[in-house]
């Protein structure tokens, strides 16, 4: 009896106690830094000396103003996000449909498709920069051998090639996420739905449109939102491929934050860009929560 009451009392604080370490750690590595970032965004701070002077909303006024780079960077970020995401979805759904059928060596096929997603961005970028090499890269040599182009193309140093290259490499790197999520859903679609459609005389396209697409719609919606958030904040891939260049043509918001802080040594301004970017992302987050709630 005593043991039982002690256990019940124990239950009262055991739950919060178990989550407490997580709350403390996340408070230290996320909560406090977020608060610091908000505060920093109101100051002018020189990165090497950390000398600071209060600027109020001066940083925000500047970055949103005519000389500021917020709107152009947001534009680049949105173009990159929308384009690479669209490619990821098309490629991802197509590949999922292929992998859902009987296939020789299916496990090996799945490994090869998953590889780009899990491989380090550094590795992915090194390989693609080698492929994009002006004289000895496979991209130029292949296209020249096929007669598509006559002279080597500068894939990363000129526009619009740089932006297109970044978008394609991003699609290659991240589409497996769509494949796995959609594949898992495809495997739960009952075969009877397809049989019924076949009886109604639906062709392959008709079956895809009337059976597959509605069935994977929900999963696809969540996947698109998640990938939209992740593509929006992507830093490594773009930074390592083009560094934001030529000039600012591929400089997305995350790259702008980094450049302000550690290239131009304006830490306060960088924090202001970061906060502005987060406000945009908050919109994505709200959309995600609403979508998930609508589903359940």
């Amino acid at each position: 009896m005593m043991a039982a009451t002690a256990k019940l009392r124990g239950d009262g604080w055991l739950g919060p106690l178990l989550i407490a370490p997580v709350v403390v750690v996340l408070g230290a590595v996320i909560g406090y830094p977020l608060f610091t970032a908000l505060a920093l965004s109101l100051f002018e701070v020189d990165t090497p000396t950390l000398r600071a002077s209060f600027a109020g909303i001066g940083n925000y006024a500047e970055l949103l103003g005519p000389g500021g780079r917020f709107w152009p960077a947001l534009g680049v970020t949105l173009v990159w996000t929308a384009a690479t995401l669209a490619l990821q979805v098309v490629l991802g759904v197509a590949m999922a449909l292929l992998l859902n059928r009987d296939l020789w060596l299916r496990s090996l096929a799945r490994s090869l498709v998953l590889f780009p997603y899990f491989v380090s961005t550094v590795v992915a970028v090194l390989v693609w920069r080698w492929l994009f090499n002006d004289l000895f890269g496979l991209a130029n040599q292949g296209l020249m051998a096929l007669g598509v182009i006559e002279a080597p193309i500068d894939w990363l140093g000129t526009m619009p090639n740089a932006l297109l290259s970044v978008i394609v490499v991003g699609a290659w790197k991240f589409f497996p996420f769509v494949v796995i999520a959609v594949l898992a859903r495809l495997q739960t679609i009952p075969e009877s739905l397809y049989d019924a459609a076949r009886l109604d005389g639906a062709g392959a396209w008709g079956r895809f449109r009337d059976v597959t697409l509605p069935q994977i719609g929900e999963v696809l919606g969540i996947v698109v939102l998640l990938r939209a958030i992740w593509d929006f904040k992507e830093f490594d891939l773009i930074y390592l491929l083009t560094g934001g260049g030529p000039v600012d043509a591929t400089r997305t918001l995350p790259l702008t934050v980094y450049q302000e802080a550690f290239g131009l040594n304006r830490m306060g301004m960088a924090a202001a860009y970061a906060v502005a970017m987060m406000i945009v992302m908050l919109g994505f987050f709200v959309a995600y929560r609403l979508a998930v709630r609508g589903r359940s």
């Binding site: 590595v29 996320i30 830094p33 970032a37 904040k233 830093f235 960088a270 970061a274 970017m277």
Partner: peptide
């Protein structure tokens, strides 16, 4: 937190 961009935290964490 899971959706927060690292680039937002990098400056404060560096200072820390």
């Amino acid at each position: 937190c899971y959706m927060l961009p690292s680039v937002v935290l990098i400056i404060p964490l560096y200072l820390m």
